[in-house]
Design a protein around this nucleic acid. Structure first.
Lengths: 134, 134
DNA sequence: ATTGACTCTGTAGTAGAGTACAGGGTTTAT
DNA sequence: ATAAACCCTGTACTCTACTACAGAGTCAAT
């Protein structure tokens, strides 16, 4: 009855079957029980666990970091502290990326402003800027 | 005298030899002349071209896009218009990424705020949020 | 003549997060 | 009984931008 085959967990979590097997290989899911014929049977907390993975991915965590988060989840001593450290590192990383992108955007806008948008490339200030400036 | 061997162009452009060969394979550089023994000899605009590639990369262009930019550079009809379109698409892409990251940062900060930073994971509101919320 | 620095081709590996088979076996429904 | 739908393993491929050899040939200096 509660035989959650791989197809069912995948469907319920909204991901592909291959992805479930991939997560198992990557140790984000424990090796599930097997039927006599070798079919995987997952227990009930697998779908919430997959949803956890999805949400953490949406927040920009890598699978390696998610593996850590899931491990902290089992740590009854100071899991919470470890989690908070990871989240704050992630915030710092995200902010660094935002600054990078803003710098890039500024560079691109400077280029776009100077460009008439018509004419031969020999006249193009964008190409000139990329070719000559430091 | 102007025999720019691959080692020289690489050194002058501040990139690796393997990278130069890679750019040739990827058609960012035209196949260079060869000596009798098969050594590459690059002409003088190769180093500026490699600098062009570096600057465009810094602005977030992929190698495929840079290949396009370099081709527009040879277009005497409307290279400039094509270039401007590409730059503006890139700006839009960068801005979309910035918005994504801001959304992610907001999610992470919400998590971090609620977390005491000590104690068992069973009490951790971050893990709880990742496990239960939509 | 020999050493060391340079170059050649071709192949393979890296990270990250999967996706796509091929070639089987199993379960379920009709 | 048979077809559809499901599952298994194992391997290889995707993308991006390189990087790292192995094994061989070449060039410049001593």
């Amino acid at each position: 009855m509660n035989d959650l085959t791989i197809g069912k967990v995948a469907r319920e979590a909204g991901i592909g079957i291959e992805t479930v097997r991939f997560y198992e290989r990557e140790r984000l899911l424990a090796p599930p029980a097997r039927s006599a014929s070798g079919y995987r049977f997952f227990n009930e907390d697998t779908v919430p666990r997959l949803n956890f993975i999805k949400r953490a991915k949406d927040l920009g965590f890598t699978l390696a970091e998610i593996r850590d988060l899931l491990a902290f989840n089992e740590d009854t001593v100071n899991g919470c502290g470890d989690v908070k450290v990871l989240v704050e590192e992630k915030i710092a990383g995200v902010e660094a990326k935002i600054e990078d992108l803003k710098r890039i955007r500024k560079g691109l806008k400077t280029l776009a402003q100077r460009c008439p948008g018509t004419g031969a490339s020999t006249q193009c200030p964008i190409l000139a800027a990329l070719t000559n400036n430091k």
